[in-house]
Design a protein around this nucleic acid. Structure first.
Lengths: 227, 227
DNA sequence: CTTTTGTTGATAGCATTACTATCGCACCGG
DNA sequence: CCGGTGCGATAGTAATGCTATCAACAAAAG
């Protein structure tokens, strides 16, 4: 995947920003810096003032790129899902078996990202942690219908569609393919968060990736497919 | 269950409030009013100032009961899980079959609450909507470890334990009982939210409760138990 | 019956957050 | 060398989050 770095960009709905942060050095510093800072102090404590100080600019300049921190978060989350879809495409290319494609998809969706592939100026390891801990806050708001109209969730919905197509291919009679996939995605994030903070509601053991195993097992048993 | 209303109270960790809201008229109005107002305008837009205006008191008086809106939300969510555990106890009393107990538990955890049982001053229909839309924001914060220490999640963890005990009884070899139960609980909330706002990532059909059916089916298939 | 204590309402005030406006300078393209 | 654009600098305003003080009242204690 390294060979494509710097050549591929992920298109983000222009309704999420006032000025495209990809087009300037300051814009990229805002994106890079916000990932650093949100990962470090959490979304609640993150403000544009702190971000400005962190990257050596002014609050007013940050506001020239993003309306508010909610829109910035939507931008980051949308980028993440665009990137995930791009990775999925490579991961499934030339793979014949639907079972293998599903297995790989579930792994992709639920595993922790540990290696920064240095896709441009974005640290994917940190962004993954942000998505795990903060992305639901981008969904669970009163503005969701409006944000949905602006295209903020288009990659997310596409990804659910693509994986649920594999589910249907594998188990044509199954009625809940999209619910299964979105449950795996969000459940995967939650289980990672719970494993770190409320281990009593999980069954995470050392030395293996229980989250990936749990959801893989869950999906294949549900689809009555002993793989 | 009506017969017990007004006689049973749900104990809430005293670390979540400054003054027990159960002990005064104003305290109960704060709880009742906050449920009304959060359900109406959402947690983001909810402030103690607005709450005070809503219930005809002052901001300072509200602060005498709760430190901040995060603690108030934890209070409401903890009450909800205490109430759910209480309901679960009745629902499972004298039921022999583990399969039936699990089926009933999953229904309880994932169905929408439509009838206000008028448990004291708390509107359970509205509280259920708040839990669906806002409770994850009470978990996904930097303070979770501290909140966990204060006992804010004790009912939640107990409930997961109790249902996962049924899972283990039904399928002794299954290794992920707690992950399964917590996935069902939170997944159920998310699917309800998605059904209303991002229907494309669900498979909700008219006239039946797809969420309950999906998770029931998911659990029993995963446990390899054709019930 | 009086004193004490606790509860609430009223008002004020302060720090931070969220955002907007204005201005001037530097740089870049024409 | 002119004109626009992007950015830093500085102000300023409204809302939010929270604390302090004080007086009125009621209930409890003596």
């Amino acid at each position: 995947m390294q060979a494509l770095d710097g050549k591929i960009t992920i298109a983000i709905s222009s309704q999420l920003y006032l000025k495209n942060p990809e087009t300037s050095d300051l814009g990229r510093r805002i994106v890079t810096g916000s990932i650093d800072l949100i990962e470090e102090i959490g979304l609640e404590n993150f403000t544009f003032r702190k971000l400005a100080a962190h990257i050596g600019t002014t609050e007013a300049s940050v506001y020239r790129y993003f309306e508010n921190k909610h829109k910035l978060l939507l931008y980051l989350v949308m980028w993440y899902w665009g990137w995930m879809e791009y990775r999925l495409t490579f991961l499934l290319a030339n793979v014949e078996s639907a079972a293998v494609r599903l297995r790989r998809s579930i792994r992709l969706l639920t595993e922790e990202i540990v290696e920064d592939s240095s896709f441009s100026h974005i640290n994917e390891v940190k962004l993954n942690r942000i998505v795990v801990s903060e992305s639901l806050k981008a969904y669970l708001t009163r503005e969701i219908d409006e944000d949905n109209r602006t295209g903020a969730f288009s990659y997310y919905k596409q990804l659910v569609d693509r994986v649920s197509d594999i589910v249907v291919e594998l188990s044509p009679g199954y009625d809940y393919s999209r619910m299964l996939v979105s449950t795996i995605i969000e459940g995967g994030h939650l289980q990672r968060f719970f494993a770190a903070h409320l281990p009593r509601v999980t069954n995470v053991r050392e030395g293996e990736d229980s989250v990936v195993r749990f959801f893989t097992d869950l999906a294949f048993r549900t689809l009555d497919y002993q793989a």
